[in-house]
């Protein structure tokens, strides 16, 4: 006897095909919804700000007169912040990832640490701001200089760098390091010559993406209390500073007083988006260009 009844199969065919179509359209709609909102956002920002973006705006100093205001100070502040965040997170983040992935014995302690690092990635950024203010600004007495802000931002993105570096290291096949050990290489030689070079594209991608997170982050710096109005350009990591998102924040706040501030904020968003776009493009290029098959 046959278990499959041809007539029954025929009957159910229609509903199965309909469900199939519904599933596809649902997923398509959810994609379109996100893109639609993003498009509106971009349109608003561009419409309001693009007219204000010009060379004088980008290279100019801050001013109370909207027509003369420029954001070079904030761009430099963001730049110096990255000078602190980049090396600190690369060194600590990759170092931690190497230890956890390649040295630490797998056990209760390491899985406890692992879980907590993943949890730290989910802690609200304002909490890191409070931590940074307590430790760097007050306890260590740095004041609200770039170094303090950069170290706070480093704490914020460190968990992301650790987790993404760990994933990059884990993706390197065991048989490559075995080949190295098999020739009498020490663990460090194997890591330095084989594992790290192979994992570097993945590590860099994660690091760049977390840098772009740090560039866009505002809340921790609000808590640290960096100034709203700052005329002189920062020249090093010990100077006072402001950054692009802070500039956007203050201009948006003040737009009730001076309407043109809203345009300045929009123009700053355009510049910030451009910087983020360049960073993300760099990450994608590194990932696709250096991706290797093993």
């Amino acid at each position: 006897m046959k278990y499959m009844d041809a007539i029954q199969v025929q009957k159910r065919m229609r509903t199965r095909l309909i469900k199939n179509g519904v599933a596809k359209s649902l997923f398509f709609l959810s994609t379109i919804f996100g893109l639609f909102v993003l498009a509106i956002l971009l349109y608003r920002v561009l419409a309001q700000g693009i007219g204000w973006v010009n060379l004088d705006f980008i290279t100019g100093k801050l001013s109370t007169q909207p027509e003369r205001a420029g954001i070079m100070g904030a761009i430099l502040g963001t730049f110096w912040l990255m000078v602190v965040v980049g090396p600190v997170t690369m060194f600590l983040g990759v170092g931690t990832a190497i230890y956890l992935e390649l040295y630490a014995k797998k056990g209760r302690l390491s899985s406890f640490i692992q879980t907590n690092i993943s949890n730290l990635a989910g802690v609200p950024s304002i909490v890191y701001g409070i931590l940074g203010m307590t430790i760097f600004v007050r306890a260590l007495g740095f004041g609200n200089i770039i170094l303090a802000g950069g170290l706070t931002m480093s704490l914020l993105v460190l968990p992301i760098v650790i987790v993404s570096s760990q994933e990059a290291l884990r993706a390197i096949p065991q048989h490559l390091s075995e080949a190295s050990y098999g020739m009498g290489a020490t663990k460090w030689q194997t890591i330095k010559n084989i594992v790290l070079p192979a994992a570097l594209p993945g590590i860099l991608t994660g690091a760049i993406l977390s840098l772009s997170r740090a560039i866009g982050e505002t809340a921790p710096l609000v808590v640290i209390g960096i100034p709203a109005l700052l005329i002189p350009f920062p020249e090093g990591i010990f100077d006072n500073f402001t950054v692009l998102p802070m500039q956007i924040y203050y201009w948006t706040l003040d737009s009730t007083l001076t309407a043109e501030y809203a345009n300045l904020a929009a123009a700053t968003i355009v510049v910030l988006l451009l910087i983020l776009l360049i960073l993300n493009a760099a990450a994608i290029i590194i990932r696709s260009k250096f991706q290797k098959r093993y």
């Binding site: 490559l176 075995e178 020739m183 020490t186 290797k292």
Partner: peptide, 30 residues
């Protein structure tokens, strides 16, 4: 030290993602 005298060839060919030259020179270099 033992592994400098006792070499190993594995089941799956596992060259390093480097040039042919660098693959051979790796052992002497380390």
């Amino acid at each position: 030290e033992l592994r400098t005298w006792v070499g190993m060839v594995f089941q799956k060919p596992n060259p390093f993602p480097k040039s042919i030259y660098e693959n051979i020179a790796y052992g002497p270099k380390i």
